[in-house]
Amino acid sequence: MLLAIEYDVMLQFEGITKRYKKAGIIYPALEEVSIRIDKGEFVTVTGPSGSGKSTLLNIAGGLINPDFGNVYFHEQNIYLFNNSEFDDYRKRHVGYVFQQFHLIPYLTVFENIRMVCSGLTVAQQIDSYLEKCSLQPLRNKYPSELSVGEKQRTAFIRAIINHPDLLLADEPTGNLDPLNSRILMSLTKEFNQSGGTVILVSHDQDSKQFASRHITLDSGRLISDQKIT
């Protein structure tokens, strides 16, 4: 179990380098990127395709090992975690939202959310989120019966139901119409305002208006890092 000591620095990337090799050719995804993200920040990450945005997010979530560098979560190097500590990190401290929703097709809306909950999370809590996200009438529907907006809101509840410290969102509005995009971004902002830290990868320039900080990557390098007031 991770230490539950409160620090201002939530996540720190230190000299992160990641390269992919395809057909013998090496493609740099991230080159010596160092970023510090404080608790309660809402960070948007933009950049062209292949700039390393998703790689950065996946390294933060512990899904990809960097080739070089360290990632610290509350001053603990997550890439020194053993398997069960990594599982615990992802289960308790990180929530993921993806562009493709990735709901389990044979589980209902309620079950998709319940699936990630620890034993202590009660159905009532899930229902209150469903109510808040206007999904209560769809509680027992399967993903195939939902619209894209409803699917993404379900995925969003799944990501935050365990009250993670960090919400990692990879192009969450990429498949949504403007209305649903706005609803999702509002929910994300609400999560942030309640104390959660958000890293959001997006092509959508509108997402910046919800952020407190904006990072731009290009060809795996950090181009800009601006606080938004």
């Binding site: 398997n83 069960s84 599982d87 308790r92 990180v94 993921y96 389990i104 990630v116």
Partner: peptide
């Protein structure tokens, strides 16, 4: 599905 299980901390 397996990816989601891993991303959500399932062992």
């Amino acid at each position: 599905e397996m990816g989601i299980f891993k991303a959500t901390g399932k062992s």
